[in-house]
Nucleic acid binder design. Structure first.
Lengths: 201, 201
DNA sequence: CGAGTGATTGACTTAGATCAATGACCGTGG
DNA sequence: CCACGGTCATTGATCTAAGTCAATCACTCG
């Protein structure tokens, strides 16, 4: 969908990127640290956490491969939470200074960056909207409607059904069952890694 | 939180904004129309919908006062869905041409705009993260952790509890019950429109 | 050829949705 | 100035969809 950061970065910025490995359980940065830039998760999972006085942690966000971390770093001077590796992870740092300089210097790059962010906002809004739907079936319908191809009735599944289930906020069992029922009712038809919507008579 | 669009728009763009009233049920634009700009919903509710061949509509998104509509318009040339008013609504159009020109001309404005989008992305991510939490109690905990004030244990509620419930994706009943239980357990204390987190011993 | 994972289905449990009723509060119009 | 309609806050009773636990089969990969 072209929503991921690295597709939009100028070669200048990309050249200045630094990769770093974070062993599971280790932290990448801590609240109060000075912000250094924008991170992209290359593999593994990172989580942003905050701790209450009793030491219990609250997960503010978790980012897997392809996600970005700490957009905050673009405008804040210090981090306001910790980033810790849930699994062994590899991250790529795009230094703040480079990014900001590039944004100032190159209006075209700035525009690309803005477009990317706008797309992210739209995508996130859509996903949030979907989570508002309580019924599993309607949630699946929403997903299908949003992701239907040009013909308006074919949806190509990118990953596994388990991944899709996670994305929809359902257990994989619930998704399997929902799809099975929709198929039985003739609402959809599964063809390989594709779902075809049938017209409702 | 400074996440809303209009706070970040330059006076130039703001001056070029056009307000428009949309009666309930009427559409603001339809799929295929040329994009004209970015809309902000001033009052009422608009929804973005797509129709399948059987005429049933799928709601892709719904936007209430303060929300923006059609960020797509920033980079796409035509709309890919319909925007229809769920209730009588008033929207404000920030013309695309003005916005893009301004973004090109004024790097500072572009930066502000980018910052605003980045904030939106962060906020949306956090909310999405919250929706991943199944337990009502943990969802409330997440909300409290994220929205705790400087002291880390006081959360000021902005709207009504019903609004909060909707925001959390819970029914208001579920929220009342959860808060009641947390209070009974001594985890929180409600003081007027404020919730205070207690340390867990 | 096992080990690991995805896909699928069954049985059972439960948290939260739904339906319902009540009290508090608030503006407002007669 | 007060009765009335409206909304929020709250709690009870009940229902159900989805979560949880569990088992099976297919498939791939080293």
């Amino acid at each position: 969908m072209g929503e991921s950061i690295h597709e939009w970065l100028s070669t200048t910025v990309r050249a200045g990127a630094v990769d770093r490995t974070v062993p599971a359980g280790q932290s990448l940065f801590r609240a109060g640290d000075k912000t250094v830039g924008l991170y992209e998760v290359l593999s593994g999972t990172m989580r942003l956490v905050r701790y209450d006085r009793s030491g219990r942690e609250a997960i503010l966000q978790s980012a897997s491969a392809g996600d970005t971390l700490a957009e905050a770093s673009l405008y804040a001077s210090t981090y306001h939470c910790d980033a810790v590796a849930t699994t062994h992870a590899v991250v790529r740092l795009y230094p703040k200074t480079l990014l900001l300089a590039e944004l100032n210097r190159d209006p075209k790059f700035a525009q690309s960056f803005t477009v990317m962010l706008a797309q992210q906002v739209m995508g996130l809004r859509t996903r949030l909207e979907r989570r508002n739907i309580h019924s599993a079936r309607d949630r699946v319908r929403h997903f299908l409607a949003v992701n239907a191809g040009a013909d308006g009735r074919t949806v190509a599944l990118s990953g596994t059904l388990k991944d899709l289930a996670a994305d929809l906020g359902l257990t994989h069992e619930a998704l399997y069952r929902t799809l099975a029922r929709m198929t039985a009712d003739g609402e959809i038809k599964r063809v390989g890694a594709t779902i075809r919507l049938n017209r409702i008579v």
